[in-house]
Design a protein around this nucleic acid. Sequence first.
DNA 1: TTAGTGATATCC
DNA 2: GATATCACTAAA
Length: 170
Amino acid sequence: MRLGAEFFRRDVLEVAPDLVGKVLVRRLDDGTELRERIAETEAYRGEEDKGCHASKGRTPRTELLYGKSGVIYVYLCYGMHWLMNVITGESGQPQGVLFRAGEIHDGPAKLTKFMQVDGSFNGADIWNSENIWIEDDGYRPEIKTAPRVGIDYAGDCWKAIEWRFIAGKE
DNA sequence: TTAGTGATATCC
DNA sequence: GATATCACTAAA
């Protein structure tokens, strides 16, 4: 079953763990379908979250985070890595889920590379796109939590919060 | 551990 | 226009 808009309208802290175990599907121009089960996500929530891009204020780039849920937010990091996010929650509050790893491809930039996702997907509706969507095939993995990574600059307080969701037992 | 990369934001 | 920053990866 393909996930609809209402799936993403919930709070990011509900959506992020829920996305773990779902299947990300990408249809290429030639009709090929790439599938990969999501193994790891991270939640970014609110302006007070120093790890969230929106913490620095509303800018043209982060504008999408404030917008409607179900929208894909693709961000070029370090000049060579595309990172893929999906906006969640009601409009007006900046929050989103970062796709951090899949079952096969461990690492956010490797995921987007495999999926051939780039900036042209920025702003697309993930529940209403011909090229990319997420399916629920009924698989329900056990989910463990961990502190987020790559946000050392955010401060100890935010580093300690376990808003990273990983499939598997532990 | 560091080098590399380029868009964005911030500071002249 | 110039510089600092960054949710990363690969190589060493």
